[in-house]
């Protein structure tokens, strides 16, 4: 187990290293020039050139990269070129905000999706199963910005139950006004819920056909025990991998949802960085997303290994 863990950690570091090179390569060939953006259209070429020198943009690419990655390893994330503030400082509140939203959505969507999936799988082809399956299909098909807009139209424009924008005063926590989290979280939940629910349902149906479930039934166990002890533990295993993959969806959705609801999180920061050609900020945020993705996959693999002893961790 430890050996596997160490091995995977080494692999993750390698992956992130490769990702960092890719990010760096892509962002440096990006058209546009941050010095130009900062100084505006009226700047003279000399001013731009001076600023470029000052920002270190004229150094060769490898030296820029080494400086950047060396800083990250030492815990210095660098400064945002456009906002002229340390990135670490910027990230602090944005990361927390996004995390609050993501965790909120995650812990609403996943357990409910798994529960509904188990129920639907064990009551296959019942009316409720059909309704739930159809609805999950709809949820999967609708992109986040459509669901988000729909929710705004229904819950805030028509029913006036919730604020349409989730903007916050700088330096405040979203938890002081939890109602602003509801619509973004619901929007985020939609796709993941549908996806995870359908996968769980399919897994449950498959496990129900297995010989060991037949054994359990013919041992004379009550159906409830069969489902709880024999069906669910086996059906949940492939679901865990799906959940890990859905964290990727969640991150993608996060960017869209934050924009739709004007929620000050990591996604909006990322988008802002793209618009202002703020390369260092863009690089760091992308790297964070990549790291989240790899670590959630590792967590899923470890969890699977703990639950299923057949998985050989080597």
């Amino acid at each position: 187990m430890t050996r596997f863990f160490v091995r995977r950690l080494i692999l993750i570091v390698l992956t992130l290293f490769v990702v960092s090179i890719a990010i760096f390569a892509v962002t440096t060939v990006l058209p546009g020039d941050v010095a130009q953006v900062i100084l505006g259209k009226g700047a003279t070429p000399q001013d731009v050139e001076t600023l470029r020198n000052e920002l270190g943009l004229n150094r060769p690419a490898y030296s820029q990269y080494m400086g950047w990655i060396g800083g990250i390893v030492q815990g210095d994330l660098g400064d945002s070129l456009y906002l002229r503030r340390p990135i670490a400082e910027l990230l602090q509140s944005r990361l927390t905000n996004s995390l609050v939203l993501a965790v909120f959505a995650f812990f609403v969507a996943i357990p409910s999706a798994v529960l509904v999936g188990i129920w639907a799988g064990t009551h296959r082809d019942s009316r409720t199963d059909r309704v739930m399956s159809t609805m999950s299909m709809v949820a999967i098909s609708l992109p986040e910005f459509v669901t988000g807009m729909l929710l705004i139209v229904i819950l805030s424009s028509t029913l006036h139950l919730l604020p349409s924008s989730s903007m916050m005063l700088p330096g405040t926590s979203p938890l002081t006004r939890p109602q602003i989290l509801i619509m973004p979280a619901l929007t985020l939940t939609g796709v993941i819920f549908g996806y995870v629910m359908r996968m769980t349902r399919a897994n449950v149906i498959e496990v129900l056909q297995c010989n060991y479930v037949r054994t359990a039934i013919l041992k004379g166990l009550p159906m409830q025990r069969v489902i709880l002890h024999h069906v669910v533990p086996n059906a949940i295993l492939p679901t865990i991998t799906i959940v890990a993959a859905s964290i990727g969806w969640l991150l993608g959705g996060l960017i869209v949802v934050e924009v739709v609801f004007a929620y000050p999180g990591l996604g909006r920061l990322l988008l802002g960085a793209v618009e202002t050609r703020d390369v260092p900020l863009l690089q760091i945020t992308t790297l964070i997303i990549a790291a989240t993705f790899t670590f959630s996959n590792l967590a899923a693999d470890l969890l699977c290994a703990v639950l299923d002893r057949r998985v050989r961790l080597s």
Partner: peptide, 24 residues
């Protein structure tokens, strides 16, 4: 009938490997 199964009538299956719950 459920009381019969497992208790008074028991069965041994053809495909043993798949007849035991792998996660238990």
């Amino acid at each position: 009938l459920r009381g019969l199964r497992g208790r008074r009538i028991a069965m041994v299956y053809q495909d043993v490997v798949s007849s035991l719950n792998p996660t238990m």
